[in-house]
């Protein structure tokens, strides 16, 4: 199996994602410069965090027009795995690969701390190694993580099980107090209808080592590895 990590001008969590894949999965991983268009040979592509194009215009708005994004759209349509983290989530929403948008945090501050996430759907290629209701400690670091969408979209997300993570307290209770950015319905991460594209504001790649405060993020990478293995056996 092979992973790719897209690098835009201004990406700054690309090395963290690379590290998580190479160290914890022990799998081959390449950096993919945003001008590249050939994604053949990859099973999963991570769109990492950072400030692509300096967040000019809107977070993720300009990265959407990079050459690699057209290929990424086809890659996702072919059922391959796309994992957007933080700025990567913003880019996937701007590109229309995920519904909704990420706005300025309700409190206006850049929020950088560990938060609790409740796993809402264990039946995705990214969360099979977790159990529904389990609470993960994962850091966030963003100023534009306030997820929003219209009522129809929210209903569709609920009905299709596309809400994958919600901000909660340590006991798994969903409340306004546990919501760090004002996100609608405490949404921290969603997937597309086919469940092969996931976007989330928190940084699981920064939660892979006990020494850094939590290794709760490893499950996402190991889930992906299991999914890729299954997918290749079916082909």
């Amino acid at each position: 199996m092979k992973f790719g990590v897209v690098v835009f001008p201004g990406s700054n969590c690309d090395h963290d994602a690379y590290h998580a894949v190479s160290k914890y999965l022990g799998q081959p991983v390449d950096f993919i410069w945003h001008k590249e268009t050939d994604l053949s040979g990859y099973d999963a592509v991570i769109v990492p965090g950072g400030f692509s194009y300096g967040d000019y215009l809107r977070a993720g708005a300009l990265a959407r027009f990079s050459p690699v994004m057209r290929s990424l759209r086809n890659f996702a349509a072919a059922g391959k795995y796309v994992f957007g983290i933080c700025n990567g989530f913003q880019i996937l929403c701007e590109a229309g690969l995920l519904p909704g948008a990420l706005m300025r945090n309700a409190g206006l501050h850049f929020v950088c701390r560990h938060v609790n996430l409740r796993v809402e759907n264990e039946n995705t290629p990214f969360t099979s190694q977790y159990a529904n209701g389990s609470v993960l400690s994962i850091p966030i670091a963003h100023a534009e993580g306030n997820y929003t969408c219209d009522d129809a979209t929210l209903n569709a997300l609920e009905e299709n099980g596309q809400i994958v993570f919600r901000y909660s307290d340590a006991e798994g209770e969903i409340s306004d107090e546990a919501n760090p950015n004002g996100a609608r319905s405490n949404i921290a991460g969603i997937c597309n209808q086919d469940r092969n594209v996931l976007g989330m504001m928190p940084h699981p790649e920064r939660a892979c080592e006990e020494l850094l405060g939590s290794n709760d993020g490893r499950g996402m990478f190991s889930s992906l590895a299991v999914s890729i293995t299954r997918q290749s056996m079916l082909q």
Binding site: L57, A61, F65, E94, P99, A101, T148, D150
Partner: peptide
């Protein structure tokens, strides 16, 4: 397509 995000 570019300047506005029609979602918001």
């Amino acid at each position: 397509d570019v300047l506005a995000n029609p979602v918001i």
